[in-house]
Amino acid sequence: MHISRAKLKVRYSETDKMGIVYHSNYYPWFEIGRGEYIIKSGITYKNMEEQGIMMPLVETYCKYIEGAKYDDSIIIETFIKELSPVKVIFNYNVIREEDNKILAQGYTTQTFINSNFKIINLKRSHPEIWEKLYALYEDKQSS
């Protein structure tokens, strides 16, 4: 199973008055995880955008299990749950490194669009990028 692992330290500015990471800060962490995952395929968001491919969010979800706190070392595990030529669903586990406790789990659904904001079939329009993403997804499926 291909799982990308991005590490970060919780910054004070990410916490609320209770000293717990404010709920909306998990979504930028998901973005960090997604970016790292895509880099593992040999491409970047920037490369994709230069080729006229964008991946807007169409759905997002996060289940908060236990609050991360200031100075916690966090690991964002990211993997593809579902991949089709027109959309991708990434899953995320936010883990406190110290005790491997899962603090939150979530997913994002994104579609592939062109620079005219029209949904595209990535497999047909950019087969080389499709193959790179699919290779990571297929890795997941074989486990």
Score class of each variant (00 low, 15 high):
Gln105Ser: 12
Ile76Tyr: 08
Tyr61Cys: 00
Arg11Cys: 09
Val10Asn: 03
Cys62Lys: 09
Glu98His: 10
Ile39Met: 12
Ile74Ala: 13
Ile65Asp: 07
Glu50Cys: 05
Phe90Ala: 06
Ile3Gln: 13
Asn114Met: 05
Ile102Thr: 14
Arg34Leu: 09
Ile75Leu: 12
Glu138Pro: 01
Lys17Ala: 10
Ser73Asp: 15
Ile53Arg: 02
Phe117Val: 05
Phe90Met: 10
Ser41Gln: 02
Ile102Asn: 09
Phe79Trp: 15
Gly35Pro: 00
Ile75Arg: 11
Leu136Thr: 04
Ile38Ser: 02
Tyr26Pro: 02
Ile120Ala: 02
Lys140Pro: 00
Asn93Thr: 03
Asp16Thr: 00
Ile120Trp: 01
Arg5Phe: 03
Asn91Leu: 11
Met54Val: 14
Lys9Ala: 12
Cys62Val: 14
Glu82Asp: 15
Val21Leu: 05
Leu133Asp: 05
Ile20Ser: 00
Leu122Val: 10
Phe117Lys: 11
Arg5Asn: 11
Lys46Ser: 05
Ile20Glu: 00
Ile76Cys: 06
Ile65Tyr: 03
Gly52Cys: 01
Ile39Phe: 06
Ser73Glu: 15
Tyr137His: 10
Cys62Phe: 07
Leu57Lys: 04
Glu98Ser: 14
Ile113Val: 15
Arg124Asp: 10
Glu82Val: 12
Ile53Ser: 04
Asp99His: 07
Thr15Met: 00
Tyr61Gln: 00
Tyr45Trp: 12
Lys87Cys: 01
Ile76Thr: 10
Val21Asp: 02
Tyr61Gly: 01
Trp29Gln: 11
Phe90Glu: 05
Cys62Ile: 07
Thr78Tyr: 04
Glu131Tyr: 04
Lys101Pro: 02
Met48Arg: 06
Ser125Thr: 13
Tyr107Phe: 15
Lys132Val: 03
Phe117Thr: 05
Asn116Ile: 03
Glu138Tyr: 06
Ile80Gln: 06
Asn116Val: 02
Cys62Asn: 09
Asp139Trp: 08
Ile129Asn: 10
Phe117Leu: 14
Gly19His: 03
Asn91Glu: 14
Asp71Met: 09
Lys9Thr: 14
Gln110Met: 14
Gly19Asn: 03
His126Phe: 07
Tyr45Asn: 07
Pro28Trp: 04
Ile43Phe: 06
Tyr12Cys: 01
Trp29Val: 04
Leu8Arg: 14
Asn121Cys: 06
Ile129Tyr: 15
Thr111Trp: 00
Lys46Tyr: 11
Gln105Val: 13
Glu66Cys: 05
Asp99Phe: 07
Glu50Val: 06
Ile74Leu: 15
Glu131Val: 06
Lys87Gln: 12
Lys118Phe: 07
Asp99Pro: 10
Ile74Lys: 10
Asp139Lys: 12
Met1Cys: 11
Tyr107Lys: 15
Phe30Trp: 08
Gly67Met: 08
Trp29Ala: 01
Ser84Lys: 03
Glu14Lys: 06
Glu50Phe: 02
Ser13Lys: 12
Glu14His: 07
Ala68Glu: 02
Leu133Met: 12
Asn100Asp: 13
Pro85Ile: 03
Lys123Met: 11
Pro85Cys: 08
Ile102Gln: 08
